[in-house]
């Protein structure tokens, strides 16, 4: 009896999570440019539109470039910081960990507005590279969290063995620490990449008037009327996120990354 109840409960939650995507997927295969569900006719042309229509293609290109670069920069900021905090006893340096987590904890509109006033004051407002820095700062939390988790998982006796055998910090980092920390770098990058791809408000407030990322393009399209391309882009985004997170789960330990204990310790 409780088993049936539990299944029903999980089914309803799953339905709630999936329903908007089912409807959007339905809309995205409409044959004509109509917002209809169940879809009238069947066509995949709205998926082709993302790549064929120059406006959507440019937005896709802008989004992917932004996500690749900003996630990379976020990792480059997070890695030395979490290495330092792991290697050294310097309690005051934890303030930087706190600053790194702040943009993600505060309502996003605050970080966005702060960056908008900053770029406007410094005169760089609207330059594409400002979006890269803005996103890297906004999402630096993700690699910071995965990396500090990864560093605590390193067995210090391994590092000690290398040190006794005469390896210096640089060699230890390259030969011992880096291979152990690599999965956490990759998952930190993956999280930052997916979220940057989807991010709207920071991108809009920093470069919204000079370039269009996909979320900005969707929002602008929403205001000026409707096209099924919005639906096909949405499905593309969900699929991308699901694939990337599945890969993280396949090659890493997803429950552990999300704060559960590793499966092999009690």
């Amino acid at each position: 009896m409780t088993g049936v109840f539990r299944k029903l409960y999980f089914f309803l939650i799953g339905l709630f999570l999936a329903l908007p995507m089912i409807v959007v997927a339905g809309v995205s295969v409409n044959e004509k440019q109509t917002l209809a569900f169940p879809p009238k006719g069947f066509s995949l042309s709205w998926y082709g539109e993302i790549f064929l229509n120059p406006e959507w293609r440019n937005a896709l290109f802008a989004s992917v470039t932004l996500a690749v670069l900003s996630a990379g920069l976020a990792v480059v900021i997070a890695l030395p910081l979490s290495w330092f905090l792991w290697r050294r006893v310097a309690p005051w340096a934890n303030i930087f960990q706190l600053i790194g987590v702040a943009p993600f904890t505060l309502p996003p509109v605050i970080t966005a507005l702060g960056l908008l006033t900053f770029w406007a004051t410094t005169g760089f407002y609207g330059q594409p590279w400002t979006a890269v820095i803005s996103h890297a700062i906004f999402f630096v939390t993700l690699p910071l969290v995965t990396l500090s988790l990864g560093f605590t998982a390193i067995d210090r006796s391994l590092v000690e063995a290398a040190a006794t055998m005469g390896a210096d910090d640089r060699t230890i980092f390259r030969t011992v620490v880096l291979p152990l920390i690599l999965p956490y770098i990759v998952s930190g990058y993956a999280f930052a990449f997916v979220l940057s791809l989807n991010e709207y408000i920071v991108a809009y407030m920093t470069v919204g008037f000079t370039m269009e990322t996909l979320p900005i393009k969707i929002f602008n399209a929403l205001r000026y009327g409707y096209t099924p391309t919005m639906a096909s882009v949405t499905i593309l985004f969900v699929a991308t996120a699901a694939i990337i997170f599945s890969l993280v789960a396949r090659f890493g330990d997803l429950p552990k990354l999300l704060g559960a204990m590793s499966s092999d310790d009690k």
């Binding site: 979220l195 989807n198 709207y200 969707i218 929002f219 929403l222 919005m230 985004f237």
Partner: peptide, 9 residues
């Protein structure tokens, strides 16, 4: 990870 734009749409 979906953006608010997409959830809203």
């Amino acid at each position: 990870s979906l953006s608010e734009v997409i959830i809203g749409f």
